[in-house]
Amino acid sequence: MNLRRLKDNISSRLMLAATVFACLLFFFVLIGLYSRASPILSAVPITDLLFSSEWGPTDGKFGFFPFIMGTLWVTGLATIIAVPISLLSSIYLSEYAGNHLRNIMKPLIDLLAGIPSVVYGLWGVLAVVPFIKDTLAPALGVETVGGYGILAGGIVLAIMVFPIIISITGEVLRSVSQELREVSLSLGATKWQTIKHVVLRKARPGIFAAIILGFSRAFGETMAVLMVVGNVAKVPSSIFDPAYPLPALIANTFGEMMSIPLYESAILLAALMLLVVVMIFNILARMVLIKIERGVV
């Protein structure tokens, strides 16, 4: 009898330890990155770091502006492409499609989420980049750097974001009560009117959260983007320009040329920026989703 209690006691303490570790892990990462990024934060004013376009680590110039803009362009474009397509698909699956179609689509969407990012990147290089170079750019009469650039990155990223927005929106739509729909339909509204005026209005905060989570996933995606975006450290001015997003900068330069003073610190600052932005987005989105789960919204 006592042995059983003892086992229960010890195991529960071990589980508690694992749980506390999970809570602390994020802070370890945050503090670890901050402590290594602090030399550059104290050596260069923060406004220079964020808004200067001069990038020359050998001369001690660390302006992240081109990289920040590159990230925003690629992620922004991916979101613009992904949001309407994902939302419409998700609405169709939850409101119109029968069980049969839904059962076929679920594994396909899971699979889309499971494909590794290098495979998406390779697909971008094999299919999207040549398409832009040989077909789209000549047709529109624009110059590209061999097809590599923001458009290619945005298209590849958009596809990677589809499953996230589709599955979260699906959950949110399912949480809208059936009675609400029936009331609207019984008043003579069409199915689409019901969706537009009742379901979507009720689901708006949740859909907002789904978009934010999709955006934040795109924000930190590294390999696929790195392979198709061109990696030129210049502030882009059109979607046909190449860009150099922050994750690509980290992947390409970290581990090399660490002899240059402050270089490592600057790269870790880039990682810290990604972490903080993603953290804010995730906390925002989760707060909305938790409220929906509790039925407050």
Binding site: V29, L33, R217, G220, P247, L274, V278
Partner: peptide, 11 residues
């Protein structure tokens, strides 16, 4: 869950 894998790598 949302932390980019490159951030884990750098850390």
């Amino acid at each position: 869950w949302g932390t980019p894998s490159i951030v884990y790598g750098a850390f």
